[in-house]
Simulated assay, not measured.
Amino acid sequence: MLNKLRILIASPASAASNNGNWQTAQRWAHFLKPQYHVEIARGWDRASNPPDLLIALHARRCADSVAACAAAGRPCILVLTGTDLYRDIRHDDDARRSLQLAQHLVLLQEAGLAELPAGLRARSAVIYQSAPALPPLPSDDGGINVAMIGHLRAEKDPVTFMRAAELASAPRLHFTQVGGALEEALAQQARLTEARCPAYRWLGNLPHADTRELLRRSQLLVVPSLMEGGANVIIEAVTSGIPVLASDISGNRGMLGAGYGGYFPVGDAAALAGLIDRFATDPAFAQGLTVECARRAPLFAPEREQAAVLRLVDNALTSHRTSS
Rank of each mutant, 00 (worst) to 15 (best):
M255A: 09
D277Q: 09
A231Q: 05
A273T: 08
P243Q: 02
N252S: 03
P265L: 12
S240M: 00
D277V: 10
F264C: 08
P243R: 01
S240P: 09
L256T: 11
I276G: 06
I234A: 06
I242Y: 03
R253F: 14
D277P: 05
D268F: 05
F264T: 06
A246V: 15
D268H: 05
G254R: 04
V233K: 03
I242W: 03
A231K: 05
G261S: 15
S240I: 04
G241C: 05
S247D: 06
L226C: 04
L275Q: 15
D277I: 08
V266K: 06
A231G: 10
V238M: 06
M227H: 11
I249L: 13
A273H: 09
Y260W: 13
F264P: 06
I234S: 02
S225D: 08
L256N: 09
G229P: 10
L272P: 02
Y260G: 04
V238K: 00
M255P: 09
D268C: 06
G254M: 04
A231D: 04
D248K: 12
A246M: 12
I242S: 08
S247H: 01
E236V: 13
G241R: 08
T281Q: 14
D248S: 11
A237G: 03
P283D: 07
R278D: 09
I242V: 15
G254I: 05
G274N: 08
L272H: 08
A270M: 05
I276D: 04
R278V: 07
G241F: 10
A280D: 00
P265S: 07
F264L: 02
S225F: 02
Y260D: 01
V238S: 09
E236D: 12
T281L: 13
I234H: 06
A246R: 01
T239G: 00
V238N: 07
F279D: 00
N252A: 02
A270R: 15
A246K: 02
G274D: 00
D268Q: 04
I235D: 00
A273W: 13
V266I: 14
T239V: 15
D277M: 10
R253M: 12
P224R: 01
P283L: 08
D277S: 10
L256S: 12
P283Q: 10
G257K: 02
I249M: 08
V244D: 07
L272I: 09
A258N: 06
R278K: 14
S247E: 04
A280S: 07
V266Y: 02
A258P: 00
L272D: 01
G229I: 07
M227S: 15
N232S: 11
A280C: 07
A269N: 03
E236R: 15
S247T: 14
L256W: 09
S225Q: 04
I235K: 11
G259E: 08
G259C: 05
M227A: 15
Y263L: 03
E236I: 15
M255G: 08
I249V: 14
G230I: 07
L221C: 09
V233I: 15
G251L: 01
L256I: 09
